[in-house]
Every structure is written in structure tokens, then in C-alpha cells.
Nucleic acid binder design. Structure first.
Length: 156
DNA sequence: GCCAACGTTGGC
DNA sequence: GCCAACGTTGGC
């Protein structure tokens, strides 16, 4: 079982949006970066746990945990001319972009802000800290444990 | 709103 | 295959 960090702009799609879905699940669509695509297509598996990160806001932070409930399948929004992230090069025969489905698991009692993450030397290796713009990032078992503890949760 | 980082595109 | 131009991300 692997751990991940998924970035989203809460104005676009937030952790509360996920929680408030009747099924508490949602497609993670719209990823249009090859490195992130490769992770979604090949590495992210059912049962993997995800740190849900809010970016592009005054206080960027990890706000909760989600679980992968469906793995790597073609992102159909890439084939929809009316969708925001339509890509004419993608087709049913040759899908370029992939997505997974995630389900709400738990809200962190205390948000783990980027500021706190940067202040912790044990988290210095996270791509998040190094100005990476990667929207799907691997998280080590130790980083996972530390961030949950910083968020006020027991290890899981 | 600025700007640094960095991924993508396209001319050669 | 190089690299300059360009576009996007995302913290500040």
C-alpha cells in the first residue's frame, strides 16, 4: 500500500466537496501533466491513501485523507470538447490522460500548513517543499506518519 | 499581481 | 536532439 499527496485548488474542487458527495467519491480528472499521468496510470492503486492538499490559497495545507477506490482509467473529460481540459489528441482508442477515483476518509483535526511542513526538517525531501509543481506526489511511510501526527491523528 | 520554477512546443 | 520561447503553476 502506497501513500500519495494530491493537490487541488479548493475553489475548483475542495475536500468538503468530496465529503459532501452523496457517495463521498469523485473522479480525480483534469490532470494534464505527463509525470502525474504516469503515476495515476501505473502506480496509484486501490486502497492507497492520499493526503488531500489545498493549493493557491493564502494558507496552503494538507486538510484530510482520501482513499483510492478505482485505479487508472482514461480521463473522459479529455475527450469532451466542452470540458475545461479537453485535449483533441486524446481519443477512446488512444487515451492520453488518466484518472483515479477517490473516497473521503477523514478530516484532519488540525490542518498541516505548508509553513509547518517546511519548518519540519524530516519533511524536507517532500517534492512539495522543493517548489515542485507536480500535482500527484509520492509520500513515504515516514512522511505519512509525521504529517498525520502533525494533523492530530493517530497513525493508521 | 508578481515572478521563479519548470514543463511543453516547435524551429532548426 | 538542442534550446529558445512560451505557458502554467503556485507561493508569496
Amino acid at each position: 500500500m502506497n501513500h500519495w499527496l494530491f493537490k487541488t485548488e479548493p475553489g475548483c474542487f475542495s475536500f468538503d466537496d468530496l465529503k459532501n458527495r452523496p457517495s463521498m467519491t469523485e473522479h480525480w480528472d483534469g490532470v494534464r501533466n505527463f509525470q502525474a499521468r504516469n503515476l495515476l496510470r501505473d502506480e496509484v492503486k486501490v486502497g492507497d491513501l492520499v493526503l488531500f492538499y489545498h493549493s493557491s490559497i493564502p494558507e496552503p495545507a494538507v486538510v484530510g485523507i482520501a482513499e483510492v477506490v478505482r485505479e487508472g482509467y482514461p480521463d473522459f473529460t479529455a475527450m469532451d470538447p466542452n470540458a475545461e481540459h479537453f485535449d483533441p489528441k486524446s481519443s477512446v482508442e488512444n487515451p492520453i490522460w488518466f484518472m483515479v477515483d477517490v473516497r473521503y476518509v477523514e478530516t484532519l483535526p488540525r490542518q498541516v500548513t505548508l509553513e509547518r511542513i517546511k519548518a519540519n526538517p524530516l519533511l524536507a525531501a517532500m517534492p512539495l517543499v522543493g517548489r515542485s509543481r507536480l500535482s500527484i506526489q509520492p509520500v513515504s511511510a515516514e512522511e505519512w506518519r509525521i504529517i498525520l501526527a502533525m494533523g492530530g491523528l493517530e497513525p493508521r
